[in-house]
Design a protein around this nucleic acid. Structure first.
Lengths: 121, 121
DNA sequence: AACATATTACTGCATATTGCAGTAATATGT
DNA sequence: ACATATTACTGCAATATGCAGTAATATGTT
């Protein structure tokens, strides 16, 4: 029952790492950035907190509790060198998927054109 | 235990519908087209056959066994009007995800630039 | 002080997805 | 007669995640 990593994740870890690459931060702040900046954010706080835990288990981030002067304690996460490597490695994967999506969209345009010309099967 | 459809699929159904939109076809042929044309095809025959079954359950395609003069019988699938609608509806979803990916890639470029300038946290 | 609300972090569960490894039946080739 | 190819399908475990919570500690209001 360990890190077999057979399945392609739906990019949650890569996106978390991306926002963490701006500097150490805690779950709630990362969630807020994602909601505000990602064009169409999918996911919720459970995803963020759980992914941060997973990333720490894998050694891509480390955490440390901070006691701010005001407000609740926050669990701050910081990327490790492995985390940086993982973020850079993610680029190829995201590029491939982008290519797949762009292929889909371009093919769909063709389909729509021929569909309007004649009603086929 | 029914069609609650809460989760966003990883696009397998949309891609199957895209290739089926070229005309009725059977699983093996669709698999071959996907392997040959999709820039980075993920998935396998199990995914194709299973997705075709799911699509039929949902009424997006209908099937009919064909007995060719040569070779094994094939189960040919044909898109329904609902299937066409679903294919066109998928465009918005794929576009959103493409936007998310392009956001990731553009942000990553910025990160890479500032990372090489100074070694930050 | 008492109470409600907000913030931060986390958990439980059902459902969905899919990679891998098989099974089964029927051509086809040698 | 036998191996191989083609076509369709199934079983299972690992993964992913949306929703709906819990818990603890600030902060604000009356």
């Amino acid at each position: 029952m360990k890190k077999t990593k057979k399945y392609s994740p739906r990019h949650a870890p890569s996106f978390i790492l991306l926002f963490l690459s701006r500097g150490s931060n805690y779950g709630g702040a990362i969630l807020k950035m994602m909601e505000e900046e990602i064009p169409c954010f999918l996911g919720d706080s459970a995803m963020v907190y759980r992914t941060l835990q997973d990333l720490e288990e894998e050694g891509l981030v480390v955490s440390q509790w901070e006691m701010p002067d005001t407000g609740r304690p926050t669990k701050n996460y910081k990327m490790t060198e492995q985390g940086w490597q993982s973020l850079f490695d993610a680029e190829e994967d995201i590029r491939k998927r982008t290519d797949n999506h762009l292929f889909f969209l371009s093919q769909l345009e063709k389909v729509k054109k021929t569909k309007t010309d004649n009603s086929n099967s």
